[in-house]
Write a protein that binds this DNA or RNA. Structure first.
Lengths: 331, 331
DNA sequence: TTGTATGCGTTATCAG
DNA sequence: CTGATAACGCATACAA
């Protein structure tokens, strides 16, 4: 009653490969492969032998690099959000990426953060998500097109060959504007983001209701920047009765600054936000345009998976909803 | 005077490979490889021919998957921070990851976000960063050890085989405690994080000065949670004169809640933070223990690069500095 | 259910 | 400076 054949090569210094495991288990390389991948049936007894051999050799499973080449896939999806401390300074960005990560994780993919200037050419990317985050240009677009990497764009313009996931910026902005108009506001100003697709859409929606809306200025969705800009504006234009912002972070900054200047919100000034996040450090709930952040992330990830699978992916525009809080009131 | 030899295969549907380019350029495969990688000198004329052939074929450069297998390296470094909306809810986490990303980018590596439960086994990782972020366990540690993936741990305990990057939690906590003691405080409480290496160190530092410090409670570095906990505490223990927090986000929440209850900060209650971020929505600067967030990130990335290169990497403990602001005053 | 044979697309070694 | 050749470690088509 012979035990398992001892065919293992003299203990070398290199890491064991699947071939070593197969030899040790007394099976062929292909059988060992199947034992690990489960892509075709293998008898339980054989599988046991293979796994035991692997354990005895300290083999930790198929080498991902080799597996990737053979399958033509790395399991890595890039996501370009620009600089992290810019992209994630606004908490509204997180639930979206979280949802992307959840869906991709479940499908066995990992998320690779890409800066704008990164040298991605050598990175093994199965697909790339481009989340606009207020940007206008896309440095590596041509590269990715040349490499035929599937691309999904979030809240961006329609670059050829990309799948688009967007929200109804214009409708949301219009709804907020109407709400203010209904409250009697006529002198309305807007604090904008840097020029970008979402910003242009939102401005269009606002101007459907207030064609002459004034511009407070523009900045990223950052408390400090917003507060500085609005401070100057309020000093110069005390007659404005409402300010429409492009994020809740901006709106919160406007509320803080208005109060600092002795204005009551919403008594003297109404403030509208965008996103629908919570602002626990304020003692009021913002009136805001709530967007489905998690849905946006899920839709993005699903589009990515579809494109990786070679299936067609359709563009998506998600609805938003006006949520009336305590930061807006009669003019 | 013959032109370049036309050896290109009948235009097939598959993507062109370097072999196609070499054939088209009339050079050997190895020469084509060198023309792209620059790993050994190639005559300018030859290089031109290769690049022209590549352009004419629409070849976008070496296939990363193949290159990775051959070189035994993917260019991907994993970073485990847990759930994004937890890890990055506190803005203090961003500058560190930003710095990591900068250094790795410059070295040609990309950063892959890893959740705790992710199936990393198939992902091609050259190294992994484990940023504690208040956690205690590390699900995939054994896997990574088995695969012999270099690991760098940030603010964690000393898992075998890992390189450690830490800050002087204990010293920082001690300095803040002494500051409060010097101000005459004797009844001091602390709002803690969930149990973890940094939390234990900081508690030790605090108790060197206030052995009997009371515990307000513990929670993640989240405004809402901190405010809720401290609200109950202040109702029950009105005699406390100072509260030491484990992050500036927590500290800001304590300030907001204290004021909501009619307490003056620092008149009736002193509040200490940790991290050294700005809290623009507060009208005072927190007294806080400032940590070198970017340095921590850089040190982490450099340790990663060293370990990937097979060089020894030494553990690092970075200093912190007490920054006195307007949230602490005489008892 | 298992074994045999091939090739994924590079990079590196070595000789010329 | 350039060319021939050999791996890298695995997954699959195909045959048994």
């Amino acid at each position: 009653m012979p035990g398992p054949v001892e065919t293992s090569p003299a203990p070398s210094d290199r890491a064991p490969t699947m071939a070593d495991v197969a030899a040790r288990a007394g099976v062929s390389l292909s059988t060992a492969s199947l034992a690990f991948s489960g892509n075709k049936p293998v008898s339980p007894a054989t599988r046991e032998r293979v796994l035991a051999a692997a354990a005895s050799l300290g083999y930790a499973g198929p080498n991902p690099l080799a597996s990737n080449l053979r399958r033509g896939r790395s399991g890595v999806v890039g996501i370009a959000v620009g600089r992290l401390s810019t992209a994630f300074r606004d908490p509204a960005a997180l639930p979206m990426v979280d949802a992307v990560s959840d869906v991709l994780d479940a499908a066995g993919f990992g998320l690779l953060l890409m800066g704008d200037d990164a040298e991605h050419a050598r990175l093994p990317l199965d697909a790339v998500i481009y989340d606009i985050c207020g940007r206008e240009t896309w440095t590596s677009y041509d590269d990715l097109v040349a490499r035929d990497v599937p691309m999904v764009v979030v809240e961006g313009p329609a670059w050829p060959g990309t799948t688009l996931i967007d929200i109804d910026h214009r409708g949301g902005a219009r709804a907020l504007a109407r709400h203010l108009h209904d409250l009697g506001h006529r002198r309305v100003a807007t604090l904008m983001l840097e020029p970008s697709h979402p910003q242009r859409e939102r401005e269009a929606g606002l101007r459907e209701v207030f064609p002459d809306a004034e511009v407070v200025g523009s900045c990223a969705s950052d408390h400090d920047a917003a507060q500085a800009i609005v401070s100057d504006y309020l000093a110069a234009e005390p007659d404005v009765t409402a300010i429409v912002c492009q994020s809740d972070v901006q709106a919160a900054a406007v509320v803080v600054e208005a109060r600092r200047r002795g204005l009551d919100v919403p008594g003297d000034l109404s403030v509208g936000g965008f996103d629908g996040i919570t602002t626990p450090w304020l003692d009021l709930e913002l009136t805001t345009v709530e967007q489905p952040l998690a849905d946006k992330g899920r839709a993005t990830a699903e589009a990515v998976l579809a494109r990786i699978a070679g299936e067609p992916a359709h563009d998506v525009v998600l609805p938003v909803v006006l949520r009336v809080g305590g930061s807006t009131g009669p003019a």
